[in-house]
Design a protein around this nucleic acid. Structure first.
Ligand SMILES: [Zn+2]
Ligand SMILES: [Zn+2]
Ligand SMILES: [Zn+2]
Ligand SMILES: [Zn+2]
Lengths: 126, 126
DNA sequence: TTATTTTCGCAACTAAGTTGCAATAATATA
DNA sequence: TATATTATTGCAACTTAGTTGCGAAAATAA
């Protein structure tokens, strides 16, 4: 692998994740950053940051791609596999720091599980 | 709501699901049916059959839409909410007739859960 | 300061899914 | 059965997320 460069685009996207406790959709990021960089750059920086273990991706409720910052991951392993929550009222998406046990299933080897819980967040259930 | 008609397209798609124990992706269905009907018709018939409770849709591992036949659903309720399994080797997708308990989470109301288990199916684990 | 190489912007592309509308086909009515 | 009604279809054009190739620009090394 080649040496990675700390460019303006990389630093900007990284700072957005470091200042957000929520997940961010790629679509929103492209819109938010449209005056700062090209959408191709957004996609490429996100892919790179995921490979480096800084952020992780998952699929939201419309098949859209979301990213959130990682806790204890690095370039070799993503250690923070967890379910995600999407509020169906306001659209907010969050990582859930809980473990949902997946039972073993006969005649199949389960290697991973994508779990998206949907409902109402604390703001919207008031 | 208007009266629904039993057209050739509806009967054909319905028979495909009745003869398949596996889930089918929309992309594959459009390809498989390209000599029988337009892709727009495939999308519209699938939407209609889901509304009627004959089939249900979910998102597979690349954000693609899949459909599978329902067991005990009707036009008013989909009663067969369950996890799905996708084989990462052969791509096959199946409904899992198991229940994965979702814990309640503080400050959030969980209304539904999309669970996609990924791994190897019985054919591919040999 | 120059050379090297990664990263970026741009434009063009791919692919899933949607929309409007006129033509067709299924059903109802006479 | 013939005709009227209206649900459904095909088509073409569109939308949107995501990708690709390549020359230009920027970051780092020499
Ligand atoms: Zn909310
Ligand atoms: Zn997460
Ligand atoms: Zn398999
Ligand atoms: Zn199913």
């Amino acid at each position: 692998m080649s040496v990675k460069r700390k460019t303006k685009s990389v630093n900007l996207i990284l700072s957005i994740f470091e200042n957000s406790s929520e997940a961010l959709s790629v679509v929103d990021l492209v819109e938010q950053l449209k005056n700062d960089m090209n959408k191709t750059t957004v996609y490429r920086v996100l892919e790179r940051l995921e490979n480096e273990g800084a952020i992780h991706s998952f699929t939201g409720s419309n098949g859209l791609t979301w990213y959130a910052k990682c806790r204890e991951c690095d370039a070799h392993h993503h250690n923070d596999i967890h379910p995600h929550f999407q509020c169906e009222k306001c659209g907010k998406v969050e990582c859930l720091e809980i473990n949902i046990p997946i039972p073993s299933i006969e005649n199949r080897i389960i290697e991973s599980a994508d779990v998206l819980l949907k409902g109402q967040c604390s703001d919207c259930m008031k």
